[in-house]
């Protein structure tokens, strides 16, 4: 037997040692970009009405969201007209303070582009929405978006 045995011919195995590294990199990317909801809902998740003429809200940092719906805590009663600002149940009177607080977080040049998104339940009453709208007008927050899910036309 010779010492120089002929090597077995065959396709050399692909080195997969770096595969976990690649996958981990992707994993970290997704872990970092995943944003958990920053406010926890004190009201039941609003059942959004559906509409066809919806527009996407761009620039998330310029959007402040007001939730309207039924409070999870039964001490607030079972009507669909509870307002949540940040993570507290509030009244319409507190809306201006909420907006001014949101404004202080962005630069002055961006203030006119700020949008208020109203996420209200289908069964909320228009009166509550009007109260909020009047308060928004008082502080000159004129761009609003009634949150709705998109349905195709007809």
């Amino acid at each position: 037997m010779s010492k120089f045995r002929k090597k077995k011919k065959g396709v050399p195995a692909v080195n997969t040692a770096a595969l976990p590294d690649i996958v981990f990199m992707l994993l970290f990317f997704f872990m970092v970009t995943t944003t958990m909801r920053e406010t926890d809902l004190k009201i039941e998740n609003p059942r959004l009405p559906s509409a066809t003429e919806v527009k996407k809200l761009e620039h998330k940092s310029l959007v402040s969201t007001i939730y309207v719906g039924k409070a999870k805590d039964s001490k607030y009663g079972s009507s669909f007209n509870r307002i949540q600002l940040n993570d507290k149940i509030a009244t319409a009177d507190q809306v201006p303070a909420f907006i001014i607080n949101a404004r202080s977080k962005v630069s002055e040049a961006e203030v006119p582009f700020m949008t208020t998104s109203i996420k209200a339940d289908k069964e909320s009453s228009v009166g509550t929405i009007t109260d909020i709208r009047l308060k928004l007008r008082d502080v000159n927050a004129l761009k609003i978006s009634y949150s709705a899910s998109k349905t195709s036309s007809n």
Binding site: L26, K56, L57, K143
Partner: peptide, 26 residues
Amino acid sequence: AFLLLIFFLVTTTMNVDSGVSKKLSE
């Protein structure tokens, strides 16, 4: 790692808010 990756892929919600936009009068 793949398992974790797929978990995060699935749970990541790129929820784009959409709504009927309206401009209030001054």
